[in-house]
Amino acid sequence: MGSSEIAVAVVRRWLALALEVITAHEEELGRLDAAAGDGDHGATMVRGLRAANAAVEKTSDGAGRLLIEAGAAFSDASGGASGALIGALLSSAGRVLDDGPFDTATATKALQAGLSMVMRLGKAQPGDKTLVDALKPFVDALAAQPADQPLLAAWRAALPAAQAGAAATREMVAKRGRSAKLGERSLGHADPGATSLVYLLQAMETALAEECG
């Protein structure tokens, strides 16, 4: 199986695994969101991922196109701010990834594009208690890996930065989104968006290990 075929297999497997893991943590994500929101983050993520999986079943295009289709479907099905941000992340990354090569350097550029789009749409910066607090440390850590390092190894090396970033949101007060209106009610609780993003990144590690390991 060539590089492009592997990339397609990874994306499909990742979306399936992401749905599994987010479904398993749906109640946890809902509880985190209820601390300073309406408690629907877990349900929103599950709904979006179901639609994303359904969308990629209908196309046989390359990995970049799969991510674009998945992002559009996620955004349409999930609704709300978080749905739009995750959808934009996937679609922006897909446009840069395109047909590859499916390596650390290209994946880093794709995620940097996705991060920029998320920050622009959400008007969020690090420290605002959003998914950016997990995504930016991960992207920065991935960019710090040798460009010729296998993607699985680079991904694994960058994961702790995302996990630490999500954990750090417990000590932050939300400054963006619906949670910002409730101020310090969010203190002591991890941000649901940052938490779900870590689950998505962990699912990708598993997909890469299965298809590339």
Results as ranks from 00 to 15, higher is better:
Ala134Pro: 04
Val118Trp: 02
Ala161Tyr: 09
Thr108Arg: 12
Gly87Pro: 04
Leu151Ala: 08
Ala158Asn: 05
Gly71His: 09
Leu142Val: 03
Ile86Phe: 15
Arg50Lys: 15
Val118Ser: 08
Val118Gly: 10
Leu85Asp: 08
Ala84Trp: 00
Val56Phe: 08
Ser116Cys: 00
Val118Tyr: 02
Pro101Val: 02
Ala93Lys: 06
Gln149Ser: 14
Val56Cys: 11
Leu85Arg: 02
Ala113Met: 06
Arg120Glu: 15
Gly94Ala: 07
Asp103Cys: 13
Leu135His: 01
Ala147Trp: 01
Glu69Trp: 06
Gly127Leu: 06
Ala147His: 10
Ala51Ser: 15
Ser116Gly: 06
Asp76Tyr: 05
Thr130Phe: 03
Asp61Asn: 14
Leu135Ala: 00
Arg95Pro: 00
Pro146Cys: 07
Leu89Gly: 03
Ala161Cys: 04
Leu115Val: 09
Val56Tyr: 08
Pro146Ile: 09
Ala54Asn: 13
Lys109His: 13
Ala73Ile: 10
Asp98Arg: 15
Leu131Glu: 02
Glu69Arg: 15
Lys129Gln: 07
Ala63Phe: 10
Ala73Cys: 10
Ala93Gln: 03
Ala81His: 05
Val96Leu: 01
Gly100Ala: 05
Ala88Met: 11
Ser82Arg: 03
Thr106Pro: 04
Leu89Trp: 12
Gly87His: 11
Ser75Asn: 13
Ala105His: 10
Ala54His: 11
Arg156Met: 05
Gln125Arg: 12
Leu89Asp: 01
Ala147Phe: 00
Ala107Cys: 14
Leu151Gly: 05
Ala54Met: 09
Val118Lys: 02
Thr108Tyr: 11
Gly87Tyr: 06
Trp155Ser: 01
Phe74Arg: 11
Ala63Leu: 10
Ala144Gln: 09
Arg95His: 07
Lys58Tyr: 00
Leu89His: 04
Glu57Asn: 04
Ser91Tyr: 00
Arg156His: 13
Gly114Asp: 09
Ala124Gln: 02
Lys123Trp: 06
Val139Phe: 05
Asp140Trp: 00
Leu131Gly: 05
Ala141Glu: 08
Phe74Asn: 07
Ser75Phe: 05
Ala141Cys: 06
Leu67Asp: 01
Gln112Met: 12
Ala93Asp: 01
Asn53Gln: 13
Leu151Met: 09
Gln125Leu: 11
Val96Phe: 00
Glu57Ser: 11
Leu97Trp: 05
Ala143His: 06
Ala124Leu: 03
Ser78Glu: 04
Val132Gly: 01
Lys129Asp: 07
Phe102Tyr: 13
Asp128Arg: 02
Asp76Leu: 14
Arg65Leu: 02
Leu131Arg: 02
Leu151Gln: 07
Ala157His: 12
Gln163Ser: 11
Pro150Tyr: 07
Thr104Trp: 06
Thr130Lys: 01
Phe138Gln: 04
Asp61Gly: 15
Glu69Met: 14
Pro101Met: 09
Gly62His: 15
Ala154Gln: 08
Ala157Met: 03
Gln112Glu: 15
Ala93Asn: 04
Leu151Ser: 07
Ser60Asp: 15
Asp148Trp: 02
Leu142Glu: 04
Arg95Met: 10
Ala84Thr: 15
Ala143Gln: 11
Gly80Phe: 09
Ile86Leu: 14
Ser75Asp: 12
Gly83Leu: 04
Ala88Gln: 07
Leu49Ser: 07
Lys123Asn: 06
Leu142Arg: 01
Leu90Pro: 02
Ser78Gly: 09
